[in-house]
């Protein structure tokens, strides 16, 4: 055969087959529940994390300065000195204003009221996922700060997601916008259960709500507490679209998350003592499925 006529071609064929088989195995084995990283991956992600963080930090800082100074570029020469002085003072005010706003946000986060016992870890977003298919964010806190896999992540406005991947100093949060993240939710007014799933853009779908349930627009959707990941009663969002057909057993419900993901800067990770128990429960469930 022509394909096997030289050593290079044979090597190429063998490597192609090996890598395809390996990647098929990887695709088949991949689960979107959580991802445990190896020491090597930990090391590299912790190495790249600060770079992402510094880019985010620099952009935020220079962006603020650029917005401020570029707008004032047409200052007249006569008033140059005075303007510089005013700029300096205004810049100070601007910085203080930013600090004040940040303080308010952080205070709000710390006041977040939930039944979860355990600590709340405040974290900043340093990056988003490299693929637009996955709605995950990277935060600047990790195992060293006490965060555990599958810890819920929230803001004062509502639910963000849960910890999917963890290194010593950084963590990846699988947000509720991701199609792989499924949250058991309740329509607060009528107490109907459904599953919230990431859909498209900034919307989620609420599935498995019966056609006869009287859901109306702007109904609040909160977590039910089932599923062992999220605490009960955390706001997910509001119903923004309903489609009921004459046939079928469920209705089509779109939910707009209460958290504005495009403007998200800080989040709070709720670390409960039960987080390790949850992992053991998942493992026990997996083992029982394998035995069956």
């Amino acid at each position: 055969m022509k394909v096997l006529d030289s050593e290079q071609n044979r090597l190429k064929l063998v490597l192609n087959i090996l890598v395809v088989v390996l990647s098929l195995y990887g695709v088949a084995k991949r689960e979107m529940i959580y991802d445990e990283t190896s020491q090597f991956e930990n090391l590299l992600m912790d190495f790249f994390g600060p770079m992402q963080r510094s880019v985010t930090f620099l952009k935020r800082k220079t962006g603020s300065l650029l917005d401020y100074y570029v707008l004032n570029i047409n200052a007249s020469k006569e008033n140059g000195q005075l303007r510089n002085r005013v700029d300096e003072l205004q810049n100070k005010i601007f910085q203080l204003d930013e600090i004040s706003k940040e303080n308010k946000r952080l205070k709000g986060l710390l006041d977040f009221n939930t039944d979860v016992k355990g600590k709340k870890v405040l974290a900043q977003i340093v990056a988003w996922d490299a693929s637009s298919d996955y709605k995950a964010i990277r935060i600047n806190k990790g195992q060293a700060d006490g965060i555990k896999l599958q810890s819920p992540v929230v803001t004062t406005k509502g639910l963000v997601g849960y910890i999917f991947r963890l290194t010593d100093n950084f963590a990846d949060v699988l947000t509720i916008l991701d199609a792989n993240n499924r949250v058991d939710g309740i329509v607060s007014r009528i107490r109907s259960h459904g599953i919230i799933e990431g859909f498209s853009g900034n919307k989620c779908l609420m599935k498995y709500i019966g056609r006869t349930e009287a859901v109306i627009l702007n109904d609040m959707v909160v977590t039910s507490g089932l599923g062992n990941i999220y605490p009960k009663g955390v706001l997910i969002g509001n119903v923004s679209r309903i489609e009921r057909e004459n046939y079928g057993i469920t209705q089509y419900i779109e939910v707009t998350p209460s958290v504005e993901f495009s403007k998200l800067e800080e989040v709070i990770v709720l670390v409960s003592a039960e987080a390790s128990k949850i992992k053991k429960e998942w493992e026990a469930l997996d083992n029982s499925e394998e035995k069956e």
């Binding site: 192609n16 890598v19 395809v20 390996l22 990647s23 098929l24 195995y25 990887g26 695709v27 991949r30 979107m32 991802d35 991956e41 590299l44 992600m45 790249f48 990056a127 996922d129 490299a130 693929s131 298919d133 996955y134 995950a136 999917f164 991947r165 990846d172 699988l174």
Partner: peptide
Amino acid sequence: FFSIEGWAMGTLAGV
């Protein structure tokens, strides 16, 4: 390292 996508899908498609 930058995506929760993992390595497998990209490798398969790439090859």
